[in-house]
Computed example of a mutant assay.
Amino acid sequence: MASQSDLKIPLAISAGVHIGAIVILALGVSFDDKPKPTPQAASAPAIQAVVVDQQRINDHVEKLKKQKQDAENKEKARQAELERQANEARKAREQEQQRIKNLEIQRKQKELETQKANEAAKAAKIKQQQEKERAQQAEKLRKQKEQERIAAEEAAKKAAEKRRQEEAAAKKAEEERKRKAEEERKRKQREAEKARQEQEMADALAAEQAALSQTRNKQVLSEVGRFTAMIRATIQRNLVVDENMRGKNCRVFIRLAPDGLVISSQTLEGDQVVCRAAKAAINKAGRLPVSNEPDVYNKLKEINLLVSPEFN
């Protein structure tokens, strides 16, 4: 747009210059040569008319020359003006071109600045996004740490409550243990006292029983000895002897029923002849003397006897 307006002014100036030159040429052709007189007959009025006409022509020529000179001066002035305008137009065009160049430089500078600004804005946006992400990450980390802190506090509270409960339970258990220990101590003390009393009673009873038992044992042993002698006498009565048995003997084992019935008999050691005779005598007797008293019978139900033949 600015370049087309700059071209219009020089074109107008050039067109004006050419038109002026054409006008000057036309004037120069029309008025430089004086008009030639037409041959006429010689007469005074004619000469006077010619002189008058010539004067007019001269005046007219001078006028034309003056007009021409004025026109040339005007043309020179116009040309000078046109030149001045052309110079001004050129200067204006150069200034405009410089302005356009400066504007282009400014435009490029602004584009560069805009580009830098866009890049800076983009970088700032990226930085802002990064800062936002870092802030979000930091907030997330803060919330996570806050949750961990809360969880730790809750865990600590639960642990403290559990420890308190355990301590209370331990204290209660210790009190229960002490109570049971005290009860156990008292029970053992009572049992010990009871045992002591029972032991004293048992000792007294044992002493009494020992005294009685000793008396009874003497009685039992006396009865056992008496019944043993009776059993031996019964076997001797049924024993068939001869002179070959003199000085010899046999040990026999006898098992008796409560009524004295011989359950079994067995020779253990001794002279074979005496052992056969002793076993035959026992079988012949079939029933041996025993006591009806249990403690005496218990000592007689299984008896070892040494059978020795007796001679008159």
Rank of each mutant, 00 (worst) to 15 (best):
E148P: 00
P309I: 00
E154D: 09
Q130V: 14
K284H: 03
L25K: 03
I263P: 00
E72H: 05
E153Q: 04
Q97A: 15
K145V: 02
S5C: 04
A117G: 13
R237A: 07
I57K: 14
A121W: 11
T267S: 05
E72I: 10
I47A: 07
D242E: 09
Q85S: 09
I9K: 07
A71D: 03
R164E: 13
Q106E: 14
S222F: 03
K140E: 13
E146N: 14
I22W: 08
L64D: 03
K127Q: 09
E148F: 00
I100F: 10
P309R: 04
K157M: 10
K66E: 01
V290Q: 01
A12Y: 04
Q199N: 13
Q85E: 00
K116F: 06
A211W: 12
A210Q: 08
E119G: 01
A151I: 10
I47C: 03
R237H: 09
E198L: 09
P309A: 06
Q109E: 12
A207M: 07
G20H: 03
A135F: 07
A121Q: 13
I263N: 01
E153M: 12
E113C: 11
I231Y: 02
I303C: 07
E310I: 13
R251P: 00
V241K: 07
K122W: 09
I9Y: 08
Q209G: 12
R164P: 00
I19Q: 09
A206R: 09
L261G: 04
Q197C: 02
A42S: 02
P10A: 05
Q272E: 09
E191L: 12
Q4S: 10
R134N: 10
L306M: 04
A12H: 11
L141Y: 02
V51Y: 07
K116E: 09
R179D: 03
A202W: 05
G247E: 03
E193T: 07
Q197E: 15
A151K: 07
R255W: 06
A120L: 01
E223T: 11
I9L: 04
I19H: 11
E88Y: 02
A124E: 02
A195Y: 01
Q209D: 03
D6Q: 10
A204Y: 00
R251W: 00
K218P: 01
I105R: 14
R134S: 12
A138K: 13
S3W: 06
Q266L: 14
G28H: 14
E113F: 06
L205A: 13
K279A: 14
M1A: 04
T38E: 13
V224G: 01
V50G: 06
T38A: 07
A15M: 11
V51L: 15
K301H: 03
A49V: 09
A170M: 09
A285Y: 05
K145E: 05
R216Q: 11
N298G: 08
K91A: 12
A211I: 09
K140L: 12
D259M: 06
S30N: 08
Q98M: 01
S213Q: 12
R237W: 06
M245R: 01
L25M: 08
R251D: 13
S14C: 06
C250T: 00
A71I: 11
E96Y: 07
G16Y: 11
I19L: 08
K284R: 13
L288M: 10
R187T: 13
Q48R: 11
M1H: 14
E269I: 07
L261E: 11
I231D: 00
E176V: 10
T228Q: 05
S5V: 11
N118L: 14
E176K: 06
G260A: 15
S222D: 14
S308K: 04
L11C: 09
N73Q: 10
A26W: 04
